[in-house]
């Protein structure tokens, strides 16, 4: 194809590297969004036979938040293949052993169980904290927005904002708070 057409093709089919902060997010809810970007379903040029999936880098996977009693009750199954090799491990045990496992399993589960799944999972990078290798951070061009609100801690709010906030009532000066 001509030079201009080649540039246009390269621009349209370029693979974008996205970054997603998993802090205080539900892994199963975020997995639905991450899977969309990994498969390329957020693009108008999507087709299952067209290799249009993007790369997603997940950070802070140690800070994910499971719902309700899931940390204590949700169990992950693993079988080594040998007789008597079935294990059911609880979520908190899995998380302590490897903080990236829970979100990896969530994204794996969100995808369709076809032969492309393992290949698409290779495009997902998960890091437990904020440290990302240099060569990966340099590639990242877009950030995926979080789904759940990350509330600000009360002690992280500025003094001035706290003073400006309208009060309904205030304690008298000689009142002693226990």
């Amino acid at each position: 194809m001509s030079a201009a057409k080649r540039v246009q093709q390269w621009a349209t089919f370029a693979r974008t590297w996205h970054i997603f902060d998993c802090k205080w997010q539900d892994p199963y809810q975020s997995a639905e969004v991450i899977k969309k970007y990994l498969l390329g379903m957020h693009k108008p040029i999507y087709h299952p036979m067209n290799d249009c999936g993007d790369v997603v880098v997940c950070i802070n996977s140690r800070e994910i938040a499971l719902r309700g009693n899931d940390w204590r009750q949700r169990a992950y199954f693993h079988h080594t293949g040998y007789p008597g090799g079935a294990t059911w491990t609880l979520a908190w045990e899995v998380h302590n052993k490897d903080p990236t496992m829970i979100i990896k399993k969530a994204v794996y589960k969100a995808m369709r169980g076809n032969l492309q799944r393992r290949h698409t999972m290779q495009r997902l990078f998960i890091y437990p904290g904020e440290e990302i290798p240099e060569d990966i951070v340099q590639n990242v061009t877009n950030q995926i927005r979080q789904l759940r609100l990350v509330p600000t801690r009360l002690d992280h709010i500025d003094e001035e904002e706290v003073k400006k906030f309208p009060k309904v009532m205030d304690y008298p000066t000689d009142y002693v708070l226990k």
Binding site: I19, F20, V137, T141, Q143, I144, R145, Q146
Partner: peptide
Amino acid sequence: KDPELNVATLPDPKFGANNRL
């Protein structure tokens, strides 16, 4: 996409936080 992404250092809470709440 917002052109400011070109010069931003990601991850940035400006682009990462949910803005549809």
